[in-house]
Simulated scan of single mutants.
Amino acid sequence: MNENRNFNEDFEIEQAGPEDVGCDLFEYELTPEGTYVPKIAYTSDPEEEKLLKKPIRRWGRAWIKWMEA
């Protein structure tokens, strides 16, 4: 047996999509990595949704940098 063979040569890998799970509770979206994640609303408050669409600007970036440090 050739040990240098690629794993994918022997097995075809299939990803389960939301239709395969059998659960209709959430809507799903495909991420760039190829996985499905549920679409969950962060909030239903229109004021909060409006704030989430604003850019974070200088102090938001400074806060993110501080949190990462």
Rank of each mutant, 00 (worst) to 15 (best):
L25N: 11
L25V: 07
E27A: 13
Y28F: 15
Y28N: 05
L30W: 03
T31A: 05
T31L: 10
P32L: 09
P32Q: 13
E33W: 01
E33M: 07
E33Y: 02
G34E: 00
G34D: 01
G34A: 01
T35M: 13
T35C: 12
Y36V: 00
Y36R: 00
P38M: 04
P38G: 05
P38I: 05
K39Q: 14
K39M: 12
K39T: 12
I40S: 01
A41F: 07
A41T: 09
A41K: 14
A41P: 06
Y42Q: 05
T43C: 01
S44T: 12
D45L: 06
D45T: 02
D45G: 02
P46M: 03
E48Q: 13
E48R: 06
E49N: 13
E49F: 02
K50Y: 09
L51V: 04
L51R: 10
L51I: 04
L52F: 14
L52A: 10
K53H: 03
K54E: 15
P55N: 07
P55L: 03
P55M: 03
P55I: 01
I56D: 07
R57G: 04
W59A: 08
G60T: 03
G60R: 01
R61E: 14
R61I: 15
R61Y: 13
A62Y: 09
W63N: 11
W63F: 14
W63Q: 10
W63K: 11
I64F: 12
I64H: 08
I64T: 11
I64C: 06
K65R: 12
K65S: 10
K65Q: 12
W66F: 14
W66Y: 14
M67R: 12
A69M: 09
